[in-house]
Design a protein around this nucleic acid. Sequence first.
RNA 1: GGCGAGGUAGCCAAGCGGUUAGGCAACGGUUUGCAAAACCGUCACACGCCGGUUCGAAUCCGGUCCUCGCCUCCA
Length: 513
Amino acid sequence: MARLRLYDTLTRETREFEPRAPGIARVYLCGPTTYDAPHVGHARSALAPDVLVRRLRRHGYQVTYVRNVTDVDDKILARARERGEAPLELSARMAGVYQEQMRALGCLDPEVEPRVSQHLPEIVALVSALIAQGHAYELEMPGGTHDVYFAVRSFAGYGRLSRRKLDDLVAGARVERDDSKRDPLDFALWKGAGRDEWGWESPWGWGRPGWHIECSAMSEKHLGFGFDIHAGGMDLVFPHHENEIAQSEAAHPGCGAMASYWLHNGFVNVDKEKMAKSLGNFVTVSDVLERNDPEALRAFLLGVQYRGPVQFDTEKLADGRVVFPGVDEAERRVDYLYAAERRLRDAFGGAMTVPAKLPPELLATRDAVSAAAKAGDEALDDDLNTPVALASLGEIARLGNELADLAWKRRKDAGFVGAASVVARSAHVALRRLADDLGLLRAPAEEYAARTRQRRLSRRGLREADVAARVLARDEARRQRDFTASDRLRDELSAAGVTLRDGPLGTEWSLEP
RNA sequence: GGCGAGGUAGCCAAGCGGUUAGGCAACGGUUUGCAAAACCGUCACACGCCGGUUCGAAUCCGGUCCUCGCCUCCA
């Protein structure tokens, strides 16, 4: 197996993954601040590390995957006040939604999902250590409370990740002058708060941790200082990850880098603009899952390499409902993959006489399947190139269909069918393996068909029994070769969104996404 | 202003120095009572624009136009 290659934001190069400890990979993802339901952008940032973790496991690494939840934050406080809810109650509820929806999208559960509210002692200890080492200082604020700031100029490497020069940052119009801080770029490690406010006790009085310190404290707690891969959205490069590096590495002088690889996923754009809560143009995961299957959203997002931007188009129907054409397209593709998988699995059942030698056309199919499987595997090793892997998966499915067609045409030739079944079995294994690497085709094909059928029926206001009865009536007319009647019934069904397929084993029906 | 990403055939999207990426749509064909599905083929010698390097560039270099992002909360 080839080596896994990853693009590292810090060095701006793609290089082979080298674990710090042989056979072990430690991954940290900056998860969401849970004040609201996750949107499609959050899904994408969880998906990229999920594919990474699957890949690392495929390479035999024992992976520890930590995905944090920021459950202490001013936005949470503000939202909780609006709702008259306790902040931690709100954030716990939203964290639950996030976890449940990421699971629905096929993201493997992380080993640890740490929360800020459960790591106050670690945060306080880290801030204290930074003060002791002269990297941070305490300031009394006008209200009598105390803040602690990180002194960016005390850390020589500041700006390396985002390639920013301190003086450029100061020159930037958006840095607010705050004369109380030693340097306008210094950022808060601890923000003092009034006794009646949400907070915790600390050596600097009552207050809450700053935004960046929690990831330094939690990654160290669960992975130790100096781990393999740190992931997150592009927007976290500066200041969040820059600040994490400063805090963590300043606290561990002479211990090397905080992380060996920094992976940053691109955004999900709506009408060419970044999807963001602040812009109000976001589509929640629930919005999509109301209409589409979770695997469709997953396939859609994996259709673009994780670092590039994803265009998420929305379309308003005449009746006011909003649909997602790209996800619909991906869903049809998932239908296709499941159908092919099912054919490969089922169409060759029964005892077969296995020939000693495969006919040449089957030999070619077998080789083509191997080539596609290899291409998909190599694509994933090349900085998680999921679009190419998806194309390879489609190629295997196509070859499987071709094989099934061929076997059907020559069904009277037992020797050929036996040989085809041997090839089909290996194609099925290849399909399943690559699908697993992508986190697709996770359900039995029947279950997928049933759940998508139910959703599509209810969206159209149809009842399964009614449709089945009409299909049966049409089948009856057809059997009596009354094609005028059967075609009329089929047209009616088609107008209702039901597509019929007359096969050798009877008529099947399905609904478009 | 500083830093960064990107512009690929109707649409989505790989490739990043030399052999067809792939998907969707559209249109032919095989198949079918007719369809659908599946399979085959066409659309596709496409790569923002102008120069340069090279035997050869979508891929490298220089310039230029446009889009987007970060620098404030953001995945």
